[in-house]
Amino acid sequence: MREIATRLIRNPLGVAGLALISFALFLAVAGPFLAPYDPTQFHVRARLQGPSAAFWLGTDQFGRDIFSRILWGARSTIVFGLTATMLGTTFGMCIGLVSGYVGGRADEIVMRLIDAKMAIPNLLFTLLILTVLGGNATNAVIAVAIAFTPSMARITRSVVLSERTRDYVNAARARGESSAYIMFREILPNVAAPVIVESSIRVAFAVMLGATLSYLGLGVQPPSPDWGLMIAEARSFLQRSAWLALWPGLSIAVVAIGFNLFGDGLRDALNPRVGEA
């Protein structure tokens, strides 16, 4: 593990990603304390202003301070991305591990169901689920987690299938170890690393998907400060103040770039052969 960390530090992609993510995490934790204004407070006389000394990034149509809203929004965005991905990864990993190791008919059935889910694009799938559950932040997390589960299960399963033919697994079977021991103690530690790498890239997708759902009105609800929602609310005012869309758009992109870079850096650190940029 330590070697992977050093290799990650030596990797320029990983370092850039790590820096961006650390910055975003810092904002998620400290943002609300740093915000100069209450994110929901109206400044009626200062509506749709550009950046100024009083309002660093300008104000929106209600005169709310965009900088404060961006700072507050960091928390919901990061929490959304991490929770949804972690839930999806955990479910997916369990399903993939058991299905891949046990094999046979049960595996066949699980795989066909996963294929069916994979035939429905993620956005469409989350839309369907939110139609049923009702659009709010918690349900959006659940919807994205469910949408991610099958692909994580499939990735886990493919790693399990290659691991289970390895001789250390054969040795454990010949030794007479129980299936549970082999799955969770022998195979799982070897599966976890590549799967976590995959899921770290997926955080970027989750952030983007979450923002899209908020934009469509099915995620975070007003008046909460959320980046996707901020763009949706600004739709009618864009021709008067482009800042309204620019700042939250930029913020989403920075976080997504951070996780993309970090994930790729992690992947390279784990698999040095593909390592060169």
């Binding site: 001789d167 250390y168 054969n170 040795a171 010949a174 030794r175 170890e177 022998e186 530690p189 070897n190």
Partner: peptide
């Protein structure tokens, strides 16, 4: 299973890469 043991071809695969040598040796 105790009396009959097997050793495999690929030394790179025969030991669990995430387990310390001592841990692997303790299992039997």
């Amino acid at each position: 299973r105790r009396d009959v043991q097997i050793i495999f071809q690929h030394p790179d695969q025969a030991l669990n890469p995430r387990m310390r040598i001592g841990e692997s040796l303790k299992r039997p």
